[in-house]
Design a protein around this nucleic acid. Sequence first.
DNA 1: GGCGCAGACTATAACGTTAAAATCGGCGCC
DNA 2: GGCGCCGATTTTAACGTTATAGTCTGCGCC
Lengths: 338, 338
Amino acid sequence: MTTLKDVARVTRVSAQTVSNVVNERDVVHPETRRRVLAAVDRLGYRPNLAARGLRRRRAGALGFLVVDPSPRYLADPFHGAVLTGLADVARDRGYGLVIQGSPPGSPDDGSLADPFRQAQVDGAVVTLGGTTAERRRHLAAVRRAGGPFVLLEQPVSERDDAASVLGRNRSGAAAAVRHLLEAGHRHLGFVIPSLAWPAVEERIRGFRDALRPLGGRATGHVRPCGPETKDAARAATERLLRERPEITAVMAANDLLALGVLEGGRRAGRRCPADLAVVGFDDFDLAQWVDPPLTTVRLPGYDMGARACQLLIARLETGRFPERRVELATELVRRGSS
Amino acid sequence: MTTLKDVARVTRVSAQTVSNVVNERDVVHPETRRRVLAAVDRLGYRPNLAARGLRRRRAGALGFLVVDPSPRYLADPFHGAVLTGLADVARDRGYGLVIQGSPPGSPDDGSLADPFRQAQVDGAVVTLGGTTAERRRHLAAVRRAGGPFVLLEQPVSERDDAASVLGRNRSGAAAAVRHLLEAGHRHLGFVIPSLAWPAVEERIRGFRDALRPLGGRATGHVRPCGPETKDAARAATERLLRERPEITAVMAANDLLALGVLEGGRRAGRRCPADLAVVGFDDFDLAQWVDPPLTTVRLPGYDMGARACQLLIARLETGRFPERRVELATELVRRGSS
DNA sequence: GGCGCAGACTATAACGTTAAAATCGGCGCC
DNA sequence: GGCGCCGATTTTAACGTTATAGTCTGCGCC
């Protein structure tokens, strides 16, 4: 492992000068710089980030802190998309990226914030899953750590050194409803998980927003289905269509539930899209591959990750968040199911 | 940020003693340990990993190095599953986890190995995608960095300080073929991407293995479809079924291609599973959600990540890899498509 | 000729931790 | 009573980098 001193010795120059060259500080004679750079290249020198981080008192790395009770948390397509955006921006801006998943068993120990407390990262992007109580507990741990963070899909408090990045869930849901209304549907269902977190609540608001202008001429039925699984959504859809046979279009709070809605519709004897229009939310990869391809509201995971990362880096480099709340557009993707 | 010295001052003890307590070295008087631990707890002390890494000359972190030309590389379900396994084991063993994605644009600069060269990680788990040339180039960069690594789904050379973790692709494919043969199918197709990497080649071998015992009584048709997309697989399947109408079962080298096969079959007028059995490979989440649910060979991504991480940690802590090559069982998951 | 100043570079110390060596009582033993 | 030894603790010096405060040379100017 070659160090600054090795380069300095070879170049007959002090370590500080090499440091100045490597960090592009404009205090070095061009000729000296040339020689140093040549040696850096020849010896394959790369700065030791631990030493640099120790001395500069900044780690030069960002964290991605994920709380999700699911055993497959990082395999969740939304997290995957966010992570890709994060990784791309972090790399391009010269930051490392550290991942910390929540210990599924013991959510109490605040270990989510470990990368902060161990000075491993300068800031973090945080996504919170699970029950409201779990989310609050983990958020408290991150807060206590004291570093700047960006929270995804959830607003932050004014007091925090934080910003939030959200999708326009409300207007996205409203756009989907208007799309269905334009297609002539007047009685709509909306299947949601019983444990509704902030983003889902926004989607419900959007659903209602778009129905309101029609007054009594259109009805909307929000139906909690229990756990966030395909089967729960299927069962809820069957029941809903039995109770309200006038319904001709059903939205789902996310694409996975939409698959359940599709199946529930089929079991209820409705063909999609002829007898029942279905609209999802998120636009996971699979949405385009199912049959019929799912009309859905795209939540831009990659862009949200990228944007969160940019915000965080701006906060680290300028001392404050340029914005405390960023909303990214959602987009209705029309496919075969509506 | 509280340091060792803060704890030492409060406890009226030297920094070294605090260090000994924190690192559970059995040289400290029980009573002293008690007092130190109390202070650690009260002050919320956590060791600074940069300082520790610098002094110990080990970063205490592992890397996940991903080369994939796809813009969604970390959203790939297999990578997501691997990453989850990695993150869980790394966390439980007290290691940090650093992610480095390949710069899609410039695959030449060897930056994949940056975490190594910057002493950010002690070892890494590596997955390589792209063309053979790209894969070789990136692998060379990792090799040059000199640290121990575990390569996924690809064998390593004896000379490297490395191990590989593979799924039993060959026997998995063979099991799938036997399953089809038992169901009475005698003429099988196998749709693969034209750019076949080692794992796919193994799957082809397994496909042929299982057909061999039947001699002339069964035929297998391997069909490259071009790029690794659903549409390419659909088109290839349509052509294949036109040229070889006797085929009643088609396998695909992965689940995404299997979706294309399903659609191609439908377009060729074959109903699944009645007129055409379809089997995929990988068992991505979506496989259970499509219609009909896809029979597929499960590649245990989570376990592969977890196992790779264990191997790497063993190498770091004992000085050598306990095994140089680990094969994890694949499992035929029978669902509705066969 | 001395002063100030700029440009190029160097010396020193520190970041927080830990390996290695040193210190210091106290205890057993010849 | 002195010697060696053990357990508990402290001292010292690094790890590789960089912030800060120098030094040193040459040059212009009064």
